[in-house]
């Protein structure tokens, strides 16, 4: 079995206008840079993007926003992107803000075949408006639904030709859950090895969840807020 494709351009083959994508990353940490750049070049439009954040104005998903390729975002925090806030307040962009833990669990559940579940987050707030609620153990909970996507795009540290993935440090974040929730999951990796070279004890995402994998190039890995110790 070999799931390797040449590059991001080949990996996004078959994507169409109006589809739903999941994109891993937290802020700019662990984002699939190569695939995002290929999406910008593709000119695909009317996309729904499920991603915890929306990048910054000139990097990450901000690049897709700037070209108005995204119709709707499902995110938990979008504070580092002025263009996003502008499009949101002007009504150009539809945005569904979801509590971060609920978002992560909706993605995990979607990938795990769980259609819906109850969580306490957001009960009594505008997040709970119009949602079914129910009391468990004396506490109110909201019914939330699992999420899936036409394509999930994740970034891992190491991968093998069968699609097994290992993430690095906090660059895992949403990638691991999203890898499970794509009808087609694309993984871009910094190190690509033949099957058998990764230690099976260390695999985060088993290859069954991944359909296409490629070796990414030219990672910028931009740091959003570089903070250092006072000497």
């Amino acid at each position: 079995m070999n799931k390797v494709v040449k590059n991001a351009k080949e990996a996004i083959k078959g994507m169409r206008d109006g589809q739903t994508f999941m994109l891993g990353g937290f802020g700019l940490c662990g984002i699939p840079e190569n695939t995002i750049n290929a999406l910008v070049e593709s000119g695909l439009t009317n996309l729904t993007c499920i991603s915890n954040n929306a990048g910054v104005d000139d990097f990450g998903l901000g690049l897709l926003l700037k070209k108005h390729q995204i119709r709707k975002m499902i995110s938990s925090y979008v504070g580092e992107n002025k263009e996003f806030e502008r499009q949101l307040l002007s009504g150009e962009l539809e945005v569904d803000l979801v509590p971060q833990g609920t978002l992560a669990e909706r993605i995990r559940a979607g990938g795990a075949g769980i259609p819906a579940f109850y969580v306490p987050a957001g009960y009594g707030t505008e997040v709970g408006e119009g949602k079914e609620s129910r009391e468990f153990n004396g506490k109110m909970h909201l019914l939330e639904y699992g999420l899936t996507a036409d394509f999930a795009v994740v970034k891992a540290w190491k991968g093998d030709t069968m699609g097994n993935l290992i993430y690095r440090e906090t660059a895992n974040n949403f990638n691991q859950a999203m890898a499970m929730a794509g009808k087609i999951t694309i993984a871009e990796v910094e190190i690509l090895v033949p099957a058998g070279e990764l230690n099976p004890n260390e695999i985060h995402t088993p290859g069954i969840f991944v359909q296409r994998i490629f070796l990414g190039t030219n990672y910028e890995k931009r740091i959003e807020f570089e903070t250092v110790r006072e000497s």
Partner: peptide
């Protein structure tokens, strides 16, 4: 005026 999103705050305060 300001819409940044709730991030993880709603999950944290609810639990």
């Amino acid at each position: 005026k300001m819409v940044k999103g709730m991030g993880g705050a709603m999950d944290l305060v609810a639990a």
